[in-house]
Structure formats: C-alpha cells, structure tokens
Design a protein around this nucleic acid. Structure first.
Lengths: 100, 100
DNA sequence: ATTTGACTTGAATAATCGTTCATGTTAATA
DNA sequence: TATTAACATGAACGATTATTCAAGTCAAAT
C-alpha cells in the first residue's frame, strides 16, 4: 500500500493514525532521533508483534520510514512530515500538529 | 459526562475526536464564527440526527460549547481550545493542531 | 393548550480498529 | 547449512466507534 500523504488522503484519515497512544509515543521517540524497533519498544513494553503492526500503520500513512540495519530495522520520522523549524511538530500537509 | 480536556485525558483521546471528517468540518466552520446547527449542516448535508451525535462528541471533549437561542441552538468553539493568535488552530492542551 | 420547528437522546446495528496467536522473512552467527 | 536474533505478516477475535431509527425535549407560534 502506498504512502497516504497525497492530495486524496483526508486530514481525518491522517489524524486517525496519530490518534493512538502507542503510535504517538513512537512518533515522539522518532522526533528525537531514529531508533531500532527493539529500542523503541524498550520504553513501551508491549508485545513486539503489536508494535510491528503499529509501525506498519505509521509506515503506510507515510509518517515514518524503515531501513534495514543488519538484522535490525531502523525507523525514522519521514522527511515529508518532519518540521525542520521546531523539530517538535509533525506536518501532515493538511495541518501541523505541534507538541510542547 | 464532563469535559475531557483535563490532565487525565490523553492526547490520543482528544486527537481521536478530531480525527473525523464531519467533526473536522464542523470545527473549521466554528473557527470562523458561531453557528446554529441547521447552518452548520447546510454545507454538510448529512442527517441532522447524525450531526447531533457528532456535536455531542465534540461537546463532551470540551471542544465546542452550545447555548440555546430561541428554538435553535448556537454552537461555538470552546474558549479553552481557541487559538487567540492565529484563529486557525485548535489547542488541545497536549498539542496544537494548526490549519492553513 | 396543541402544534410545529429545531434539535437531542437512547438503543440497535453496522463498520472499523486494536490485539493476539501462529507463521514467515531476512541477515548474521555457529 | 542449520540455527538464532530481529522483525513482519495474515487471520481470527474482541472492543470501539459510526450510523440509523424511533422517541423525547424545549421554545415559539397558532
């Protein structure tokens, strides 16, 4: 499935991806720096398979990108949604969600 | 049910309220000015009873406030979430959602 | 006092989403 | 090349959420 950040994708659809405790926590971590799955999960403490599903949701929405790093996978915030100014916000195109 | 904008309410819970096409459309209208239910629905074209349910959700989340006006009801953006600077954003406490 | 207009509410159903479990993939190591 | 570590996927199930339908409230007009 392609990236959801295009002209067709509604703002509500993208906000829905953001509107989850786990996924928000992941994004907040990746706003600081790229991390491996295990590292992300260290502070979450949920089942790895569940995190994997959430990461897929984030990927398909175009909010994060994954790249293999040995037998691990490194996740980072997608460049398209990165807020270069503050580094504390996520740019969904339709709206900007800024955290404190 | 009380207002959901308090310290206990998670950001995800509030974002979930925002993450709906209809509710977003309503908020965008109310960011401009207060409106009656019928006026809100004029541009939405959904069943009135359905809009009423969405308005309830917005009310319970503390995003909008309602006041009777004759036999109509006037809705406005809740003062707590209003962004006094831009007038184009919604302040959820945990984060600020700004539109273009 | 009844009717009408403008909305709200509750209950039932339909649709979507999150979680779990079993299995699959990929890359390094033995 | 078999094994293990790190992660992904698909299907099934349970929990939430959206939508509809029927009934109810409240204020103004008749």
């Amino acid at each position: 499935m392609p990236c959801k950040i295009d002209t067709k994708t509604s703002c509500a659809t993208l906000l829905k991806v953001l509107a989850d405790e786990t996924r928000l926590a992941v994004l907040r971590q990746l706003m600081k720096r790229p991390k491996h799955v295990a590292e992300i999960n260290a502070t979450l403490g949920i089942e790895q398979t569940l995190l994997s599903h959430h990461l897929k949701t984030l990927r398909e929405a175009g909010l994060v990108v994954a790249q293999r790093d040995g037998k691990a996978v490194l996740y980072s915030l997608a460049p398209e949604v990165e807020d270069t100014r503050s580094g504390k916000a996520i740019n969904l195109g339709c709206c900007l969600v800024s955290f404190k």
